[in-house]
Amino acid sequence: MSDFALSGSPVSATLSRKVIRARRLRLLQQLTLGIGFPVIVVLLWQAAAVTGLVDRRFFPAPSDTIAATIALLQDPDERARLLLDMLATYRRLVIGFTIGATLGVVTGVGMALSRPIRDSLGPTVSATFPTPKLAIFPLLIVIFGLGDASKVVLIALGVFYMTCLSSLSGVLYASPLHRDVAKAFRIPAWTRWTRIVVPSAMPSIVTGLKLGLGQALILVVSAEFVSAQEGLGHFIWDSWQVLDVPRMFMGLVVVGLTGGAAVLFGEFLERRLIPWAPKS
């Protein structure tokens, strides 16, 4: 808010310079340590592999992985295959996550707002929630076939539970005071739901979405291990099967980067959907 900007007096200018410098120093330190630690780990690994401390066939030196990566990226056929694998995985992720998150939030909010819906769905949702989703993957293949559909449904299921339960508790345990205000001011039902109930539950809903993203990533890679002709999970599993370990590590790096991107996306959602939340 510009209303709260510091005034331009010389005292406040020195003060703010001081504060800004301290903040910059802190950020620099944070970045150095945050990047420094993994770099040191990789260097130690490199040393261990080169000196023969670990078996280089199973734990290739990071330089081996980099070399394999460069070789793969220079081969147009291999490059195209990797790209197709990534696309396949991302397609399943995006479709599965969208379906699961939409159904989850709608069901969760619906359950919170309506007692009959809660009474009829609640026991089933709670009872099936602890089942490891991967355990029903064979059943999903029977129902939806070997193609994309069974994998998308698996991801959607995992995301559904996370978002449904967090939306449910988000609305149920939203501030009773906000509910009182809505009632005392006789705010019409639709306005109440869309402008008070759901925003009030939004922090909890976003937490559910973030957990759902992590869940989706686990499920898509696991499903692709077991049954897929393409996808990052298949890329990793396939590399392992032919004992091309550097290639396998490369797949792991891509999956890791995807996870990082998912975390960033989660933070983007957080900033976008709950701009009033205190910055962490």
Partner: peptide, 12 residues
């Protein structure tokens, strides 16, 4: 119309 004891503004 009610003014409540604790902060009842909507933060969003």
């Amino acid at each position: 119309a009610t003014v409540f004891q604790s902060d009842s503004t909507f933060p969003w």
